[in-house]
């Protein structure tokens, strides 16, 4: 028997994804309605943002385009969690109904198997929307384009998304221990709406909390400093890729521990 390495998992994911997309295409109405729903969410988010700036020209020295940059950046950073880890939302129901047990009998990593089951295609709409916003802001701030800055952008986007994935993993895994923990996910998911504001609006105590305890400041604020405040980049920004990986790994361990302690309700 071969060892199941990265390539093995990549292949499996590719096959499941291809099949899943094929079957999704056959439910076109559902696909269209979900996409419209996603567009609605983004537009409404944008309108709220716009209304605030209609009344207030800047927030703590952050101008309109800089805020727009944060906004677009956070939307892109939130795409992976939407596309690849959306099955976290169903975890509670699977655990509650006892259906989660079916994931326990396969000879592959259970976290991978569980997440591979759902690919949420509507996240791509968010990606497009976020890219447009980011591009518009980028252009107006005159950041310019070079290979170094693109590499920086990609690394910081990946880092930022790791944080959100980790937050959602942790929130979802609470259902292994708590009944009806859906509220926790709804609550945590709501936090992400505040990721698009600069962390400087908080006082030092809460800045600490949103950096180290509920690290939403890493989703847009810290990575954006590389581009918007290049003369004054804090150490945390440089460390954020490492912290992101570590945080993701911790969330994975907690999730796996939950899955292991799962015993299945009902008989």
């Amino acid at each position: 028997m071969q060892k199941r390495g990265l390539l093995f998992y990549f292949n499996i994911y590719r096959k499941i994804l291809a099949q899943d997309l094929k079957s999704k295409m056959s439910y076109r109405a559902d696909f269209i309605i979900s996409t419209i729903g996603m567009i609605f969410t983004n537009i409404s988010g944008f309108i709220s943002f716009w209304i605030i700036f209609k009344n207030f020209p800047s927030i703590k020295g952050w101008g309109y385009y800089e805020m727009l940059f944060l906004y677009g950046f956070s939307l892109i950073a939130l795409t992976p969690v939407q596309c690849f880890f959306d099955n976290n939302w169903n975890l509670r129901n699977h655990v509650y109904s006892g259906d989660f047990i079916k994931y326990c009998f396969r000879p592959i990593n259970i976290f991978f198997y569980y997440m591979s089951e759902v690919f949420d295609i509507k996240g791509l709409g968010q990606f497009v929307f976020g890219s447009l916003v980011l591009g518009y802001a980028w252009n107006n701030i005159n950041l310019g384009i070079s290979i170094t800055i693109i590499i920086k952008l990609i690394i910081s986007l990946i880092t930022a998304s790791l944080f959100m994935i980790a937050i959602m993993n942790l929130a979802a895994s609470t259902c292994f221990w708590l009944l009806n923990s859906g509220y926790i996910m709804v609550m945590v998911f709501r936090f992400k709406d505040y990721a698009k504001y600069p962390a400087t609006i908080f006082n030092s105590g809460f800045k600490f909390i949103f950096t180290f305890i509920i690290p939403i400041a890493f989703i847009a604020y810290y990575p954006s400093l590389v581009f918007l405040r290049p003369d004054d980049i804090p150490v945390l920004t440089w460390l954020s890729p490492l912290i992101g990986i570590l945080f993701f790994y911790i969330s994975y361990l907690v999730w796996m521990k939950g899955a292991k302690s799962y015993s299945g309700t009902g008989s």
């Binding site: 609470t174 221990w177 708590l178 009944l179 009806n180 509220y183 926790i184 609550m187 709501r190």
Partner: peptide
């Protein structure tokens, strides 16, 4: 019945 939910709602609301 859902202790966890109630506490998390209270805390979540507070953080929000």
């Amino acid at each position: 019945q859902f202790k966890g939910a109630i506490f998390s709602i209270i805390i979540g609301n507070l953080v929000y």
